[in-house]
Write a protein that binds this DNA or RNA. Structure first.
Lengths: 254, 254
DNA sequence: CGGGTCGTTGACTCTCATCAACCCTCGTGG
DNA sequence: CCACGAGGGTTGATGAGAGTCAACGACCCG
């Protein structure tokens, strides 16, 4: 008997299990899903906008981001995915990817054929529920991003993004607060927040000067969580995280 | 025998049937869903942010919008829903609504208990597929909005919104191009696009001056579709509309 | 007729984009 | 071992697009 936790897809099952109760049979079905594993370099495309994708992607390790290009060539980053996320499921039902997915760091991924996922979902209501729920969480995060970009100023937008990525990393258990991995270039932060990299640079400097964060070379340290959260108007409810590794206050009644 | 097309929920079934093939049994199950119908006034809340909703909403007629409030009180409109849309399904799986839903016009709605929808989905894979697909379309639209707000200037943002709402109205078959209903106040346009109502006003005047649209008192006339589409950097693929009532060119190779 | 909501206009301000350098770090190859 | 180049980060000067404030006008409804 091999340890099921050593199985490549175990990361995915663990993630789904955080939000949806899965019994042994369902876990087994998920682990038994057919897949093709691959190692990906920074910047490589996992899915290209307009592609007719026939599989979704389980992100086994590393970071990836979704993006879309406007007519004038400017790019909007639509979301960021961490280890354990299942990406590109919508293409299973919409037939055409309407955004690109790229690796933000070197990454390990597993391609899973759509039909296998769909079949598992139809056979096990709990699996359908789990997948459906994850996609609603993605929508909820996208909504918060829209609010972020549409209504907040540069400082708040960036502080908010810092909080989100840090907290989601904590949820994966892959980091030791207050230290986090920060894989985004300043240009990517700009594309995620609707700002230019120049302005991102100046704003990050202001956050450093105010002793809210330290940030250099892919490493982020949040030196003052409460003030950063306030600066970013951040309240984590929209992430629908399961019990957090350590308590996080809800909304600050500003 | 009464005409099934006269049933209040027929609008919903027709909408789902546009994107997903449903057989007679599935249609019957949907029509037989329990519901409570209601008439709603402009501005009334259908769901309030933070509510623990136990039902979703079928929009039988009229317009509704989703919104979220930032810490400083400013509001972001996250999306707009038309006749035939099924709204608030996410609350079924996430337990807490993370946005408000309000009527933008007088509306007829039907509340459907979550458990009834979920049960129907579990009993009929095609229903599950239909609902899941609709929610992916919602996400796709939200992504385009994020791109719109993050990357485009005021003129493009507003032109894009005009195109989207007009085209979605055409898809419901409830209007005669080039004339459309325009239920949004300028303040709502601002909240949807991340602009102030003052700036929306000036920008709309510019679009009128350029003879792209006519707009007054809830009525929109698109006098020059090709140029409006170009002005809004609009290409309708993200709406994942079924066959359109009249042909719409794909992306203009700008 | 009066009040409220929505639309319009003008003057002024400010955040953020733009453009253009320059620096640092790191990996590569001669 | 050093030269080189590329990507990413930093800085300054300037200007445009959008926000703010404030007032007024048009329309609708009771």
């Amino acid at each position: 008997m091999t340890d099921p936790n050593a199985h490549p897809l175990a990361v995915i099952v663990r993630k789904l299990g955080q939000r949806t109760q899965l019994d042994q049979a369902e876990t087994d079905v998920l682990i038994a899903l057919p897949y093709r594993a691959a190692s990906i370099n920074t910047g490589d495309h996992l899915i290209r906008e307009g592609d007719r994708a026939d599989g979704c992607i389980a992100l086994l390790s590393g970071f990836a981001y979704l993006s879309k290009i406007a007519g004038d060539g400017s790019r909007q980053i639509l979301g960021i995915h961490l280890q354990g996320d299942l990406i590109g499921l919508q293409a299973a039902l919409l037939h055409r990817a309407d955004h690109s997915i790229q690796a933000m760091t070197p990454a390990r991924v597993a391609y899973i054929p759509h039909q296998a996922i769909i079949a598992a979902a139809h056979a096990h209501p709990a699996i359908a529920t789990a997948l459906w729920r994850e996609s609603f969480v993605d929508t909820s995060v996208a909504s918060e991003w829209l609010l972020n970009v549409g209504q907040r100023d540069a400082r708040r937008r960036i502080a908010h993004l810092l909080c989100e990525i840090a907290l989601r990393q904590e949820a994966t258990g892959a980091c030791q607060p207050p230290d986090y991995v920060w894989p985004l270039t300043q240009e990517q932060v700009g594309d995620a927040t609707g700002l230019t990299s120049v302005h991102v640079n100046r704003t990050l400097q202001a956050l450093r000067a105010d002793s809210l964060i330290q940030l250099s070379r892919q490493r982020l340290t949040i030196t003052d969580w409460p003030r950063l959260r306030a600066a970013g108007d951040f309240s984590p409810a929209y992430l629908h995280l399961p019990a957090l590794p350590h308590p996080v206050p809800q909304r600050l009644s500003a």
